[in-house]
Amino acid sequence: MESFKTLMIILLSSVLVDNYVLSRFLGICPFLGVSKKLDQATGMGMAVTAVMLIATAVTWPIQYLLLNPLNLGYLQNILFILVIASLVQMLELLLKKFSPALYSGLGVYLPLITTNCAVLGVTINNINDGYSFIGSMVSSLGCGLGFLLAMVLFSGLRSRINDANIPAPFKGLGATLIAASFISLAFMGFSGIVENIFA
């Protein structure tokens, strides 16, 4: 069981230092695809955060109560994918019933999370890092918030790129990728900060 200080370090480091999009390069597809408008980017970020939390809450017990006692650690990937995909489908049904506005707002992005590698990455990394259940939940919350932060930052940047007069060869995806690499570089500045904040 981690202390409060450790939990804060886990949270902050997964938001800033080990940001899933900008440092570990997972979940790039929605990062580039859904970041054109701020409201869509925020919606996608929230949805991913929610799915990461639920997925961790389910996959952590599966790993420690089913796979480890049975010595079936190698089934981790396939079982996690199965569980996450079904969870997203259930979440979709629930949203459709109880919050049609959010459902139509998220639209196609919710099913897209099914195949989002950031969600699978969070669940597997939580196991690999040996976090407790609480630690895993905090870590996936941090990763979700980090994803949200990256999406919101990048959607703001993209709206500025759209208005700028860019040389023809860099128009569209070219300028977008260059901008993404700059943000990624900027986030490298955070490395080594978090451990010292709580020292």
Binding site: L70, L72, L75, L79, M90, L93, K96, K97, F98
Partner: peptide, 27 residues
């Protein structure tokens, strides 16, 4: 055999859950 049974069982449970959800929360 255990591996097969485990994945099979998890898949069945998830499938039944999905079926239940789609009936319970049908719009």
């Amino acid at each position: 055999l255990t591996a097969f049974l485990l994945v099979f069982a998890v898949a069945i449970v998830l499938g039944v859950l999905l079926l239940l959800f789609s009936h319970l929360f049908m719009v």
